[in-house]
Design a binder for these strands. Structure first.
Length: 468
RNA sequence: GGCGCCAUCGUCUAUCGGUUAGGACGUAGGCUUUUCAAGCCUAGAAGCGGGGUUCGACUCCCCGUGGCGCUGCCA
């Protein structure tokens, strides 16, 4: 029987959940789901200075929102004793030592190395010296500077990768016995948590040989590695705040649907079996997911494609569901509204929304439109023509009401024929109702607004023309 | 500087030696039409360069070039 797959996402709570971290989490989660394994969430807060509870909360919320439920949860700050044990063991075995160089000395050495042969690696002479100092120096894993070894590992996505051991330097692993640094915390946790596959961003490739050395020093088994391509900004550098919104929560608050974002993120670096179908449900993605379909090169984050995918998902909801989804966004922008009213508007939402916060563009359903009277003129129609058109429109609505949309449309079409064209009827009506030159169909708007409000707005438009 | 990874339309990608290099987003045009969207149709748009290997390379190998990542007592 093969070992149960166990993967993890290991974010550090030093910032809000980044979209890239969310994607790494997604790929881990998909791999676990596909293989019937376990997905573990591990908060890497060894850097107490920079870690904050609010970021941790944001990370948990974000993953939950995306539906990436975890099977086990750990926090590194709860586990210092475990790391201490292993750090002490390395010290006792003579595999690690205290380095008493000050940060200034280290920095000076670094500058000299940059000027010199270019290799940046600290091989510490305190390695073999007896301890005379109080033990305040950082702890390093001892690496052989004369090693001829090339540390090789197989990456599931990239194939064999190798590094020269002698270029690594003595690896910093802890500030003191009770304060582990990243590399050892990862190695110990991955071992203790029985992680079988380390799936992470390609920015961690260079950490891998260091972690392998630590595994070997500790006698741990090596997990499988898979380094994911990065999500890029338009300039093809690692996606950051300077390119785009990177916080997952902001996408949620803008009205991107979790299933759309998940679909989009999955496609950023992975292709389904049928590459021509891009709208994929979570279940389908889980079923098809495989690491050997993951790409090697980075993918530029394209908000336009996300918008399109999101609009496709929005179209799948019925009126009541859409009213439910849009309600918080409407409330945020215009105050609380009747549910039934939102249900009436929903067909228009469905057709036009790319993301939910775009309900802003439907302001005329929630407040009186403001516009310049001149906008009421269709092409080069004058005040009189426009006023007349609006007055006739008013009569028609007054007479037949707004219950029968098609009948109303028919009557207004007839009016268009009597006048110089339908444009002369619909354009002023649109502006009167919405205050916009681009809007949904004015008859649709009329029927949603209702007879009373519609007539009020038409009258106000006529008044505007009279005064101008 | 050193080390590593990567390289097909503007973007996301298909192709696992033989294709008119396919699809999606976006763009342009058209249909529809009262505007704007949506929808449908159409168009334009790509193999970084140079060497090999081969009957035949986008595909395999090498060398360039370019981009990115790492180069912390951050993770």
């Amino acid at each position: 029987m093969t070992k149960e797959v166990r993967v993890r996402i290991a974010p550090s709570p030093t910032g809000y959940l980044h979209i890239g971290t969310a994607r790494t989490a997604l790929f881990n989660w998909l791999f676990a789901q596909h293989n019937g394994g376990k997905f573990i969430l591990r908060i890497e807060d060894t850097d107490l200075e920079r870690s904050e509870k609010k970021f941790e909360d944001d990370i948990l919320k974000g993953l939950e929102w995306l539906g990436l439920n975890w099977d086990e949860f750990y926090k590194q700050s709860d586990r210092t004793k475990i790391y201490s044990k292993y750090i002490q063991k390395l010290l006792d075995d003579g595999k690690a030592f205290h380095c008493y160089h000050s940060e200034e000395e280290l920095e000076k050495e670094r500058q000299e190395q940059i000027a010199g042969r270019g290799v940046l690696a600290h091989f510490c002479e305190y390695k073999n010296k007896p301890v005379e100092h109080a033990q305040t120096g950082i702890i390093r894993l001892s690496v052989d500077r004369d090693s001829k070894r090339r540390i090789k590992f197989n990456d599931i996505i990239r194939g064999e990768i190798e590094f020269e051991e002698r270029l690594l330097g003595d690896i910093s692993i802890a500030k003191d016995t009770n304060t582990p640094l990243y590399n050892i915390a990862v190695v110990v946790d991955d071992y203790e948590m029985d992680i079988t596959h380390v799936i992470r961003g390609e920015d961690h490739i260079a950490n891998t040989p260091k972690q392998i050395l630590l595994q070997e020093a500790l006698g741990f088994e090596r997990p499988e590695y898979a380094h994911l391509p990065l999500i890029l900004g338009p300039d093809r550098s690692k996606l950051s705040k300077r390119h785009a919104v990177t916080s997952l929560a902001e996408y949620r608050d803008t009205g991107y649907l979790p299933e759309a974002l998940l679909n989009f993120l999955a496609l950023l670096g992975w292709t389904s079996d049928d590459s021509e179908k891009e709208i994929l449900t979570k279940d389908k993605i889980v079923k098809q997911f495989s690491l050997d379909k993951v790409h090697k090169s980075g993918a530029v984050f394209d908000i336009k494609k996300l918008n399109w995918i999101n609009s496709q998902y929005i179209k799948t909801y019925d009126d009541a569901e859409l009213a439910e989804l849009t309600a918080p966004f409407v409330e945020k922008n215009f105050g609380k509204q009747e549910k039934d009213y939102l249900i009436k508007i929903s067909p228009l939402f469905r057709e036009r929304l790319e993301y939910l916060d775009q309900v802003k563009e439907f302001h005329f359903f929630f407040r009186e439109p403001e516009y310049d009277g001149g906008l009421l003129h269709w092409k080069d129609a004058g005040d009189e023509e426009t006023k007349n058109s609006l007055a006739e429109t008013e009569k028609i609505i007054e007479k037949i009401g707004v219950e029968d949309k098609e009948k109303l449309r028919g009557e207004l079409d007839q009016l268009g024929k009597r006048l110089t064209g339908r444009g002369l009827v619909y354009w002023p009506l649109r502006v009167a109702l919405t205050g916009e030159k681009a809007s949904p169909d004015p008859v649709d708007v009329t029927c949603i607004l209702g007879k009373e409000k519609t007539l009020g707005r038409v009258k106000r438009a006529v008044e505007k023309l009279r005064l101008s």
